[in-house]
Design a protein around this nucleic acid. Structure first.
Length: 326
DNA sequence: CATCAGGGCCCTG
DNA sequence: CAGGGCCCTGAT
């Protein structure tokens, strides 16, 4: 059993995101599979955060309303933090969770859409976003490949519990992601003992790329989408499926929807065309269907997708269960 | 028990 | 540019 590192509250900040802002669907995405590094209950999210190689605990609490939002951010750390460090962290949090995104135009454009209209009523103020850095998300992307959710969770937990750090803060024990370069003394065979299979090579090479400074997340953010895509596809173990996730979750492109995996194809076919999974609608036709959402294509997909997963939390959807194989 | 497909990607021919 | 191979797991 690994030693737990106890953190102390070092800083409390309050942040006002743009209005409207919905706390729960922003901080809890039922389809995001990562576990062990976060915990959610209505109005509160605990999340570990590796920032500039320091392992932090963060507690987000909703202190406002959807119309008038206010978020309290408590930062826990082992030692005192410099103001500049905290400021940069808060700025990064705002970026990753899209606190400053203006959704009004999206809502205005599609409030009369028969699919999105009702979803807006439920999830008005929900932001897309993801707490992971590019490095972290790439590792997550690799364990998502060619595996069911359960297996992905298993691989992710094994990695986290071997190379991460167990933190204790605010009576929660959660694992913090390791820093890039951590795997430099880890062999591919070591990784394989964690049953990540052939992904071991991709994981190790990814760590090499970052420790050699071959990829810079912040430089990449400033490039356009095509350039980002080209750079990402150069990375060993990254293909079109992973890039599509990255462009939305890490680089926040709301308009890019070019990839539908087989299981997603079945789900969309059922949702939009009421087709059975054995007889799904061709991917090209699905992509065409989403053209109507123009520059908000992927954001629209996100809203529809999250709505489905939230439904699943409260009601049993037999056909969906069959497809997701958790 | 054996076989196989899977929420991809790389590499070869 | 098509398709085989890769790891492991759960389903059949």
């Amino acid at each position: 059993m690994k030693k737990t590192i106890k953190l102390k509250l070092q800083k409390t900040a309050q942040v006002k995101p743009t209005k409207p802002f919905a706390f729960d669907p922003t901080f809890h995405k039922p389809d995001h599979f990562t576990s062990g590094d976060n915990y959610w209950e209505p109005g509160i999210r605990w999340q570990t955060w590796n920032w500039r190689k320091k392992c932090l605990g963060i507690k987000f609490s909703s202190k406002g309303t959807i119309a008038n939002p206010l978020i309290e951010i408590k930062v826990y750390a082992k030692e005192k933090l410099l103001a500049e460090f905290v400021d940069s962290l808060i700025e990064e949090i705002q970026y990753r969770y899209n606190f400053n995104l203006d959704l009004e135009d999206f809502y205005k454009s599609f409030s009369k859409d028969s699919v999105l209209g009702p979803i807006f009523k439920k999830w008005r103020g929900m932001r897309p976003g993801h707490p992971s850095s590019l490095y972290e998300y790439l590792i997550i992307g690799i364990v998502l490949q060619n595996a069911s959710v359960r297996r992905s969770v298993q691989m992710f937990k094994a990695l986290l519990e071997n190379y991460g750090t167990l933190l204790e803060f605010d009576d929660k024990k959660l694992w913090c992601f390791w820093s890039p370069g951590r795997l430099q003394n880890v062999s591919i065979d070591d990784l394989r003992t964690l049953k990540v299979g052939y992904r071991a090579k991709s994981i190790r090479k990814m760590d090499d790329n970052f420790s050699q400074g071959l990829i810079d997340e912040y430089k990449l953010r400033k490039q356009d989408r095509e350039a980002q895509m080209t750079e990402l596809l150069k990375l060993y173990g990254v293909g079109p499926a992973t890039v599509w996730y990255l462009l939305f979750d890490v680089f926040h492109h709301l308009d890019f929807f070019n990839h539908v995996s087989p299981w997603e194809q079945k789900i969309y076919s059922k949702l939009f065309f009421n087709r059975n999974p054995e007889n799904p609608v061709p991917v090209s036709q699905l992509l065409k269907h989403f053209e109507r959402y123009g520059k908000y294509k992927q954001l629209a997909v996100h809203y529809i997708w999250e709505d489905l997963w939230w439904k699943r939390k409260h009601e049993h959807i037999p056909w969906l269960e069959k497809e997701i194989r958790i």
